[in-house]
């Protein structure tokens, strides 16, 4: 992968993302032309002084569709880079951002708010906050279970993640089973499969800045991420402080995943397949994998969210179903390709 090809690819993906977002704004119960979209955008940014779009159209574009699509791209980018980083951390190609228990922890939080009315003083933010706290609780538990003599063992991290996820899923399922409220049960199911319907300009700031922070931090450490892929011994002899670096990744990746899950539920598959697709295109060097994953993840989720809005319109399909249905065939196709080894080495 040469520098020029890399730059071209980044350019193409940025254009692709902007085009996808434009199309996504156009699609919906009210048709909107691309011209209006850009006009309203520039009008709101103060570049244009007037717009031909009617007030209603402006509201739909600016207050309803835009935040949702921006959130989709933030969530997609965040899950993709978290997946890429986690795959380096545990050196395992089936790892995804939820492997440390984030999603099951968040589900317990969300379910207890929806079904039991916990944190109701917080009003609309209760679900997000509870989900975030649940996610962080799960990761902290996994982290301490995986620490032996002050060192983090990768295999223990994976197994502790599975064990903690199982317990927490059991708790969620128990709450669902004991609940008598049909609506509540449906709401929890909907939440667990993910949705971006709750997007508002006011709740985009935290996800956006978390993504920006974690992306920059990871990219600054791309050499260490690369070195981790060579094996822990080799990474250590290349000057990587293994324990510190692992804690660093776990901390920031969990933080970002927690934030994203809190606003959108646990959308599966993106964090698993996007890094693999990206590696097929550009190789394993994290200097390229991180930026390209973030853009690809964003594009993928913008399209997935668009599909979620229109397949069952006026009903909404949970986006997790779309990502799985669209993602799996791509993944299976990759499995059948001989050139990509999924990190098998031989």
């Amino acid at each position: 992968m040469t520098k020029t090809r890399f730059t071209l690819l980044i350019g193409a993906l940025v254009v692709g993302l902007l085009a996808s977002m434009t199309i996504a704004v156009m699609v919906g119960s009210v048709d909107i032309t691309p011209r209006f979209i850009w006009e309203v955008l520039f009008f709101k940014l103060g570049i244009l002084i007037e717009t031909d779009a009617s007030n209603a159209q402006a509201v739909i574009i600016w207050d309803i569709r835009f935040p949702r699509i921006v959130l989709a791209s933030i969530v997609g980018a965040a899950l993709a880079i978290c997946g890429a980083a986690i795959q380096a951390l545990v050196k395992n190609s089936i790892a995804d951002p939820y492997i440390l228990g984030v999603s099951s922890g968040a589900s317990v939080g969300a379910a207890s708010v929806i079904l039991l009315g916990a944190f109701s003083v917080l009003g609309v933010y209760a679900i997000s906050l509870a989900a975030f706290l649940g996610a962080i609780f799960a990761v902290v538990t996994v982290f301490f279970l995986a620490r032996v003599n002050g060192r983090i063992s990768v295999i223990r991290l994976l197994l502790a993640g599975i064990a903690v996820s199982m317990v927490l899923s059991a708790i969620t399922n128990f709450m669902l089973m004991m609940s008598k409220q049909q609506g509540g049960i449906q709401a929890v199911m909907h939440w667990m499969l993910g949705s971006l319907a709750g997007a508002k300009w006011s709740n985009l700031a935290i996800p956006f800045f978390s993504l920006l922070l974690v992306f920059i931090l990871l990219l600054m450490n791309y050499r260490q991420l690369n070195a981790l892929l060579l094996g822990e011994e080799t990474a250590a002899t290349l000057g990587v402080n293994l324990d510190r670096f692992r804690i660093f990744i776990i901390l920031f990746v969990s933080l970002l995943t927690g934030v994203v899950v809190a606003v959108s539920g646990s959308i599966g598959f993106v964090g698993l397949i996007i890094p693999h697709i990206v590696r097929m295109m550009v190789g394993s060097n994290y200097k390229m994998v991180l930026p390209i994953s973030s853009l690809s993840g964003a594009i993928f989720l913008v399209w997935a969210d668009m599909a979620a809005r229109i397949v069952l319109a006026p009903e909404e399909m949970p986006i997790g179903i779309i990502t799985a249905i669209c993602g799996s065939p791509i993944f299976i196709w990759m499995l059948r390709r001989k050139r990509y080894s999924f990190g098998d080495g031989e």
Partner: peptide, 13 residues
Amino acid sequence: AVVSQETPVLFDF
């Protein structure tokens, strides 16, 4: 510098 016995390169460089 070390050339250890492990050569498990995950993914492709």
